[in-house]
Design a protein around this nucleic acid. Structure first.
Length: 692
DNA sequence: TTAGCCTTGAGT
DNA sequence: ACTCAAGGCTAA
């Protein structure tokens, strides 16, 4: 083996790994402080200590893995290639000479139209050798992932847990490499506990579907003589009628041209995890019935052969984004999904990182019929009261609000039962909040805990503003383009971060996207404004290389320099209110959980939010906490609301400015374009931001 | 330890 | 019979 980078292999268990490169060169996606230093793992790998520690062995659940990240340009519509074309393409793949498809050299036939040929490993950028543990990866990352899970290794990063990972330096920091594997969607459950070889697992159908989509995208983007066939498949009649659960979207012919070049420092890594990656949804309740259900399934023989009805939990285990967002599932893919094919909400789902599974082949699961289905766990039992101890609502609070004393109902009239699926995941099963309930929630709050305290913990996951600014120093032609590139990076960071925000991650993905669409510019402005007034970044950017200067605030204003006077006013007001980190946290989360924000004036549109009640609850709680915090300084709630509104208004004006730039074709960033496009998609009749 | 190649075996 | 994603083996 050739020695790569700073690593040198010595004797057993003593590979020396020198410190990774500077954190400033890391990818935003790698910054994931939620990544648990698993205490499930036995072997702690300390590169600097040259030894291996043995820790106790017990399972952990990493709440971070609710959603898979996907970094590919996403389809505008939910349509598919004709089955014949897909089959044709599959034949091209399978008609390769046997014996040449081994290991890393398989799929070397360049004529084959296969994802394996087209993709780079989403972890390190090396050549993909096939699906491994839920993801198209290279052989080395497959092996690395397998070793890590099988041997329960625990690594330690000697830097800031955001080391870049690419083909040349993937060996330097196994901690960050594994983190990236997880972040990109590799599934520890696919590593067999009993190490049984061969056979198939329940991911098969997912791989098949994903492969079909990839081939479709490849076909669409290749612009070959298949084009005529493809185009006919894109008729409007086929775009909106896809059956839920059967598809995961397809690909836009023009979208792939810009998707893989998003500014990142480890440019070798294409954004190439499975688009619309499905995820395993799972209750974060070790004792819970849901997990038992999950385990039962995941240890089961192949699902496709199971005798289960199609409506059992298996439908929820591998779930898909809803077709509604196929036109914008760049974000959808980044967010992942926690909705089931029927569009019901899967809330309170987390992902078992170190739940390495037993082989599926030997595990009996005949008792399954005695287990409640996933949805049954949400529903009242017919025998009596709901058992909250096992349904995921146990000890649930919003900040300082406890719902423990709520009385569940035992039967639900059919006309309101359907609303339960859209109800707050934080509420016990209770079809409609009563006045009493609301009173209890909002006016009898114990002061021991605070939702902002809870939410603020997730801020550790945010990329600092200076980091965003630092990363965008190349290929910048002018101030506006620089701003746009930073905004794009900021959006990447935002989407990464938001997945780990408490409560947000429990929302239906449709809601998550709507909130993101309507809050991104405000959050971006808040981040930059606070960074400036808090002296985290210099108020002026000076580019020696490019020869231009600009106020940092302009970046916060999405490149709109004419808004600077208004921004100055805002800052003046913030400073007069002694705007501090707590205020920053409050405003940021108010912006995120703002149901009234959705789509500008959005008359009635907020009703489209599936979890409107929860979002309102959270918003109110945040405001309450903020008022409480500011209470001693003679600032009224209205002052705070007004400040928030002012920030939001400014951000929307900036967004309006950017939208005109977008219409003029001056923006070439995929995420940003999606954000700007969203206002068209969702509100074509209204000039969304006319309400400013 | 890594990573490329090999073996396996349920699914098709 | 073939596929392909698991696990295994082993040179570096």
């Amino acid at each position: 083996m050739s020695m790569v980078g700073l690593e040198s292999a010595t004797s057993l268990g003593s590979t020396v790994i020198l410190p990774p490169v500077s954190a400033s060169t890391s990818k935003l996606e790698d910054i994931n402080p939620h990544f648990a230093t698993s205490h499930h793992l036995n072997n702690t790998y300390h590169p600097h200590h040259h030894n291996i520690h043995t820790l106790s062995h017990h399972h952990i659940i990493n709440p971070n893995q609710q959603m898979l990240q996907s970094y590919q340009q996403q389809p505008p519509q939910d349509f598919y290639l004709p089955t014949e074309l897909i089959q044709q393409q599959q034949q091209q793949i399978t008609q390769q000479p046997t014996g040449t498809q081994r290991g890393g050299n398989r799929r070397s036939n360049t004529n084959a139209l296969s994802p394996v040929d087209q993709e780079n490993c989403p972890v390190c950028g090396d050549r993909v050798s096939g699906y491994h543990y839920g993801l198209l990866t290279c052989e080395s990352c497959k092996g690395f992932f397998k070793r890590t899970v099988q041997n329960k290794k625990q690594y330690q990063c000697s830097a800031d847990q955001n080391c870049p990972i690419d083909k040349t330096c993937r060996k330097r920091c196994p901690h960050c490499r594994f983190k990236k594997c997880i972040d990109r969607g590799m599934k520890v459950e696919a590593v067999r506990e009993d190490r049984m070889r061969g056979g198939r697992n329940k991911f098969g159908s997912y791989y098949k579907r994903d492969r079909a989509q990839r081939m479709q995208r490849i076909a669409l983007s290749s612009g070959t003589n298949n084009a005529s066939v493809i185009n006919t498949s894109l008729s409007p009649t086929s775009t909106n009628s896809s059956s839920a659960g059967s598809t995961t979207g397809s690909f836009q012919a023009t979208s792939s041209t810009t998707s893989n070049t998003t500014s990142t420092t480890d440019g070798m890594i294409n954004r190439s995890t499975p688009e619309n990656s499905s995820q395993l949804s799972y209750f974060d309740n070790t004792e819970g019935k849901i997990k038992q259900e999950y385990d039962l399934l995941i240890q089961s023989p192949t699902l496709s052969n199971s005798t289960h009805s199609s409506s059992n939990i298996s439908d929820f285990v591998m779930n898909r984004p809803t077709p509604n967002y196929m036109q914008s599932d760049n974000i959808a893919a980044l967010l992942g999904t926690n909705v089931d094919p029927q569009g019901n909400q899967l809330s309170n789902t987390t992902f078992p990182v170190y739940a390495c599974i037993k082989s599926e082949h030997f595990e009996p699961y005949g008792q399954r019929s005695n287990q409640p289905t996933f949805m049954e766990n949400f529903m009242p039992t017919s025998q009596g009261n709901v058992d909250y101890s096992n349904n995921g609502f146990q000890n649930t609070t919003i900040g300082h609000i406890s719902y423990a004393n709520m009385t569940p109902i035992t039967t639900i009239p059919s006309n309101i039962a359907s609303s339960i699926n859209n109800a707050s995941p934080l509420l016990p099963i209770c079809p409609l909040p009563t006045e009493t309930t609301i009173d209890q929630v909002f006016y009898s709050r114990p002061k021991t805990t605070n939702i902002l305290d809870e939410l603020s913990k997730s801020l550790e996951n945010c990329s600092p503003v200076y980091h965003l600014l630092q990363k965008q120093t190349n290929n910048v032609s002018d101030r506006f383009q620089y701003s746009v590139s930073v905004v794009e990076e900021s959006l990447n960071s935002l989407v990464s971060w938001v997945k780990h925000v408490p409560y947000f991650d429990k929302l239906h993905m449709d809601d998550q996207m709507k909130l993101l669409y309507s809050s991104w510019s405000t959050i971006h402005l808040i981040d930059f404004t606070f960074a400036i007034i808090n002296n985290e970044v210099h108020p002026e950017l000076n580019f020696d290389v490019n020869g231009f200067r600009m106020p940092t605030a302009v970046v916060g204003l999405l490149g709109c320099e004419s808004l600077q006077p208004k921004w100055d006013e805002l800052v003046h007001r913030m400073q007069s209110l002694r705007f501090d980190r707590y205020d920053y946290t409050a405003v940021k989360f108010l912006a995120l959980f703002d149901e009234s924000l959705v789509y500008g004036n959005g008359a009635g549109l907020h009703e489209n939010l599936k979890n409107i009640a929860l979002i309102k609850e959270i918003h109110a709680s945040i405001l309450y906490s903020w008022v409480e915090y500011k209470g001693l300084s003679l600032i009224s709630e209205n002052d705070l609301r007004s400040l928030f509104t002012q920030i939001r208004s400014l951000a929307r004006q900036a967004q309006k400015f950017l939208y005109t730039k977008y219409q003029m074709g001056q923006i070439d960033c995929s995420l940003l374009k999606e954000m700007l496009r969203s206002q068209e998609d969702n509100n074509p009749q209204q000039a969304v931001y006319n309400s400013l």
